[in-house]
Design a protein around this nucleic acid. Structure first.
Lengths: 239, 239
DNA sequence: CAATATTTGTTCGTATGTATG
DNA sequence: GCATACATACGAACAAATATT
């Protein structure tokens, strides 16, 4: 990938290029990156500039360096399959990651017109909203906001605070199965608060997805919004 | 949506918030935005600051204003369905947009190891690469890079330069049908060159998708990369 | 139709932080 | 250190177009 001029500092552009290459799988997990000498030659910059970029990648936890040996890819983006039956923990374990979740807040409040429409409720009916943070190998991966109709699932707020997984909490209120009905995706820039939670720069690219989960009869169960960290996840869509 | 502190100027944060609201459909196409007075009160800022944000949205072509009347939503993000049979022109016309394409460059060169693998070629075999820009209603929507095996489709480079649509060019070399085998998505920041083509800020969030198109027998035809402008497109995924 | 209220557009002024030379 | 320029943000007033009563 070429590096071009502009407002972006050169070292950051180089870091972006290397991060992209790692993300694309050109440098798989565990593989050795080109030496600083090769990189500084390839990009036409001083070795110090390459070192600056590399140190940024080390800070991000993407690569680690060993003196005399080289720089090695520590983590590659998590492959996250989109589909009717995606489950967070399951998907991440399949990708060889250790999944974990942190609850940021759980609130019960009247729904807005939009939320009510998505969940097929009357405007203003109570909904249970869970804000959470999803991690892979301890690294923040995504922020989520999940909306449920309070009246349909009494005690759900309590369950959500006790269980780590939404799937399990839903099971405890009698929802044994659900599927994804629709997904919408956009790219957005991280706000200051999002950046704080995801441990990225403000303005960092995020994949913003909204989705509706329904039961076997097609009744809406959960209306969810997820902000994936653009650098750390690749959403995949098979056939 | 709340506006938070940080390095981002307040007017830009407000513009982002409004852009997001429009994208989410909270303000449908043609609807009136809240007055400057209401917005400046809601965000707790001076009316000038709101005006600055609004003027940015006007510049983007997202909103138009009428003195004495208000600010109105001019365009909402194009809905772009992902699926086995997505075709650019067809999808955009379905979304009520006027699609057009611009060819940036067409080159024939030896494939890299990665490109060869995706297209099931021997390393170094010639490939035909087309760089293009997709527009909706004259506004840049996405940058694309399409890779084809040169040997399999003699004369394709010529066809690609003559036809506006890849589908038509492929038809002229005997490919009557193809489907999308797999799609991968990530969020990235626009580089300076990408920003120039897409007419966005450097660092603006893009949806980077890579996909492989195959024929009825599953043989790879096209390996394509597309950078969608995050603010102007919503990728959708039904059932 | 006319009077009035609302809303955007414009032009002053003030102040602050930051980058540049 | 200092002067300069620029972007950001707030405040007040008025003009012009539109909407409403």
């Amino acid at each position: 990938m070429a590096v071009e001029t502009g407002k972006t500092p050169i070292w950051r552009a180089i870091a972006n290029a290397l991060r992209g290459d790692i993300a694309e799988g050109r440098y798989p997990r565990g593989s050795k990156l080109p030496t600083e000498a090769v990189l500084s030659d390839r990009f036409g910059v001083n070795r110090h500039t390459v070192r600056h970029a590399m140190s940024a990648l080390v800070d991000e936890g993407l690569v680690h360096t060993r003196r005399g040996a080289g720089a090695f890819v520590k983590a590659t983006p998590t492959e996250y399959p989109l589909g009717k039956r995606m489950r967070y923990h399951q998907s991440l374990r399949a990708a060889g990651r250790l999944p974990s979740k942190k609850v940021i807040s759980i609130e019960t409040r009247p729904s807005t017109a939009e939320e009510a429409e998505r969940l097929a409720l009357r405007d203003g009916e109570l909904i249970c909203v869970k804000h959470g943070l999803s991690l892979a190998d301890g690294q923040p991966l995504a922020l989520s906001e999940s909306h449920f109709a309070e009246a349909r699932y009494p005690g759900l707020a309590q369950m959500l605070s006790e269980e780590t997984s939404i799937t399990k909490a839903l099971a405890r209120v009698g929802i044994s199965d659900f599927t994804r009905a629709s997904t919408r995706m956009r790219a957005t820039a991280a706000t200051a608060t999002q950046a704080l939670h995801l441990q990225v720069r403000e303005g960092a690219p995020l994949m913003y997805t909204t989705g509706l989960d329904v039961d076997a009869e097609g009744n809406p169960i959960e209306y969810g919004m997820t902000w994936f960290c653009g650098d750390r996840v690749t959403l995949t869509l098979e056939d």
